[in-house]
Write a protein that binds this DNA or RNA. Structure first.
Lengths: 147, 147
DNA sequence: CTCCGTGCAAAAGGTTTGCACTGGT
DNA sequence: ACCAGTGCAAACCTTTTGCACGGAG
């Protein structure tokens, strides 16, 4: 888990950004953002709901979905869709990559330092402006390799 | 679209692999595989269904889902999950990468030659055996940049 | 002839939407 | 006080599952 201090800093930055952009600072947004910032895994909307709901009686699943969408739109989080099933959400911190098991779909973070920096390719032909990248490494996790 | 010739070759290889592995060569499997091999986009299961169904009256959506899963399991296709919504299917050819628009979610192929070869990272700490990788470049497509 | 593969219908997720109310600004 | 944001319930879309039938090997 990130240090409490780092989380507090990010929460403060989040609050300031919200004010600057005129986004209402509701308890729900604060709580969802904080929950996301505290975790090092990639929770689904439902997992965020389960974690936050006890602290916020009456919180609605719908709201969690809507807040997460807002966070993604505003660049505070990223949506990580892997295999079939629920979307997972990742607080945006530094660039990192993913290791995905072809067998069971397990997803693990691989931090940037394990991977050489990549020069952004020339994509002029496609009309895209490239901002960043994420690498998905495919393979088999230990338990899938054993069976 | 890949050349008719290339498609025919891949269909033949597919049929031989099926025989060798004892997979029944049903019309449905042939048709779904052929449709996938002919396209250069990444169709959803539903798009495959819509494309194949007119030629194969009585084809069921369920079957398309099941055939696609078989193709993925057997290594004839890959599942590409991007943004929310339906999974997309990619006929496996060479390694290639993806360009994803943060604005509209559009996904475009970027072939391997545009990107320098990457040395597979050391993942011993994670217990994974890494086989390959795909890079997702994030950015904005032309039309999203203009608005 | 034997099963694997298919079709249908229904269920099972996951996510979105319409509408009325509430709480931030 | 206004309007963005929330809660609830219902709709929606994608995918999976149970079961009976049919066609490939």
């Amino acid at each position: 888990m990130p240090s409490q201090r780092a989380v507090a800093e990010r929460l403060a930055a989040f609050e300031e950004d919200c004010r600057r952009r005129g986004l209402a600072l509701t308890i729900q947004r604060r709580a969802v953002f904080e929950e996301l910032a505290e975790r090092k895994d990639h929770p689904t909307a439902d997992q965020v709901y389960d974690a936050v709901q006890p602290r916020l009686r009456g919180l609605s699943r719908t709201t969690v979905y809507r807040v997460l969408e807002t966070l993604v739109d505003q660049g505070f989080a990223r949506r990580v869709q892997h295999a079939t099933g629920a979307a997972r959400f990742d607080p945006v911190t530094e660039r990192h990559h993913h290791l995905v098991c072809d067998g069971c779909g397990r997803l693990v973070d691989l931090d940037d330092s394990a991977v050489p920096e990549l020069r952004l390719p020339d994509a002029r032909g496609t009309g895209f402006r490239i901002d960043d990248y994420t690498i998905s490494f495919r393979g088999l996790c230990k338990s899938c390799r054993q069976s």
